[in-house]
C-alpha cells in the first residue's frame, strides 16, 4: 500500500502532468489561455485575482524552500529549526490566507456574476473543487499540527521523500508515519498535478518571463503557409445565448 501511494502514484501523476502538457502543447495551443473573465466583471476581480495569484506564488516559493532545500543546508548557514519553523508558519499563514481569501472572492464572483457563471464549464468547476481542496487541506494540516502540538517538522520526512522522487530512488517507507492530514494534502496535490494540463490552469506554464528581455515590437516573416488557416476549434458558428443549466457545452476545457 505504501509503495502504491508513495512511489507508484506520484510518478503516475507526474507522468500524466508532463505527458498532458506535451499533448496539450501539440494539439491544443489554441486552447492554452487564461480564459480571463475580466471583460464581464472587473471590480471584484481586481481584488480577488491579485490576492489569489500573489498568495499562491508565495505558497509556491514556500513549498520549494521547504521541500527542495535540505534541512542540513539551512542549518549550515545558521538557521535553527525553531527560527525556520517560526518563519515558515508566519509567512506560510499569511500567504495561505491571501490565497484562500482570494480564491473565495473569485469563486463567489464566479457564482454570483451572471455572465461569468454562464462562461464556466464543467471542467472549470471540477478544477475549482480540486484546487480549493488542495489549498484547504494544506492549511488544515498546518493549522492542526501547530495548534495540537508544537508543529510538525515535515523537513525530516516529507522533504526527503519528495526529493527521493527526483533521485529516481523513491523511499516510501518514511511517509508511513507522517500525520494523516499531510498525507491527504500530498495525495490531493498530486491529483491536482495530474489534472493540471487538462484545465485552464495550464496558463501557469506560460508565465511571460521572456517579456522582460524582448524588444517591444516583434517582427515576423510571413508564415510559410500563406492564406487562410484551418478553422479554429473555438471559433464556433454564429453567436448563441449560453445555456444556463449546464454551463457552456464546449469540448473539454
Amino acid at each position: 500500500m505504501n509503495l502504491l501511494l508513495w512511489a507508484v502514484y506520484p510518478y503516475l501523476a507526474l507522468a500524466v502532468l508532463v505527458g498532458g502538457l506535451i499533448w496539450r502543447h501539440r494539439y491544443d495551443r489554441f486552447g492554452w489561455t487564461t480564459r480571463s473573465s475580466q471583460l464581464y466583471e472587473s471590480a471584484i476581480l481586481r481584488w480577488g485575482s491579485p490576492l489569489f495569484h500573489f498568495g499562491v506564488l508565495m505558497v509556491l516559493v514556500g513549498h520549494i524552500g521547504g521541500l527542495l532545500v535540505p534541512k542540513a543546508w539551512t542549518e549550515a548557514v545558521g538557521v535553527t529549526e525553531h527560527m525556520y519553523h517560526l518563519m515558515a508558519v508566519f509567512i506560510g499563514t499569511v500567504a495561505g490566507m491571501c490565497t484562500l481569501i482570494g480564491l473565495s472572492i473569485l469563486i463567489v464572483r464566479r457564482r454570483r456574476t451572471g455572465p461569468v457563471f454562464a462562461a464556466t464549464t464543467r471542467n472549470d468547476k471540477a478544477m475549482y473543487v480540486v484546487l480549493a481542496g488542495v489549498i484547504v487541506l494544506g492549511l488544515l494540516a498546518t493549522v492542526r499540527a501547530n495548534v495540537a502540538g508544537g508543529g510538525y517538522d515535515y523537513r525530516e520526512t516529507v522533504s526527503p521523500w519528495f526529493r527521493s522522487l527526483f533521485y529516481l530512488h523513491p523511499d516510501p517507507e518514511i511517509m508511513a508515519d507522517v500525520p494523516v492530514g499531510f498525507q491527504i494534502h500530498i495525495l490531493a496535490a498530486f491529483a491536482l498535478f495530474a489534472f493540471w494540463p487538462f484545465t485552464r490552469l495550464v496558463h501557469a506554464f506560460s508565465a511571460p518571463v521572456g517579456y522582460a528581455t524582448r524588444p517591444y515590437v516583434v517582427y515576423r516573416s510571413r508564415d510559410d503557409r500563406p492564406g487562410l488557416r484551418p478553422t479554429r476549434p473555438g471559433w464556433e458558428g454564429p453567436p448563441q445565448p449560453p445555456d444556463r443549466r449546464s454551463g457552456r457545452t464546449r469540448s473539454r476545457r
Binding site: 451572471g114 454562464a118 462562461a119 453567436p239 448563441q240 445565448p241 449560453p242 444556463r244
Partner: peptide
Amino acid sequence: PKSLLTGE
C-alpha cells in the same frame, strides 16, 4: 431581447 452573455 436576450443577452448573449447570460441568456437572460
